[in-house]
Amino acid sequence: MPINYYIFLSVALFCIGVTGVLTRRNAIIIFMCIELMLNAVNLLLVAFSKMHHQAVGAAVPTAGIDGQIFVFFIMVVAAAEVSVGLAIIVMLYRNTHSVDVNFLNRLKH
């Protein structure tokens, strides 16, 4: 499959994620949108990794492998982030009885 398809798909996913982050007020949905963006990037990394591997051929077995390794890192970071983020959301809910991010304007002060 040509690489273009992957690119378009991941751009679409990324844009959906960005729009979600910007427009939604529910913290959990924002989180999900962030995950969506991360996964769009992951998809792109894997796609390019595959493409590089094919381009070099079997001569270099490890070609393009670093892209896939990167994906693992991102997944780990994303997991850690989710755990911290969810903890924050829980704390937020306990304090404000809401998960609406518009209440989170304490940074102003």
Partner: peptide
């Protein structure tokens, strides 16, 4: 500009 609204910051970033 520093409204404290996280959404605002993100929008600016984008």
């Amino acid at each position: 500009i520093q409204s404290g609204q996280v959404g605002g910051y993100v929008l600016l970033m984008v």
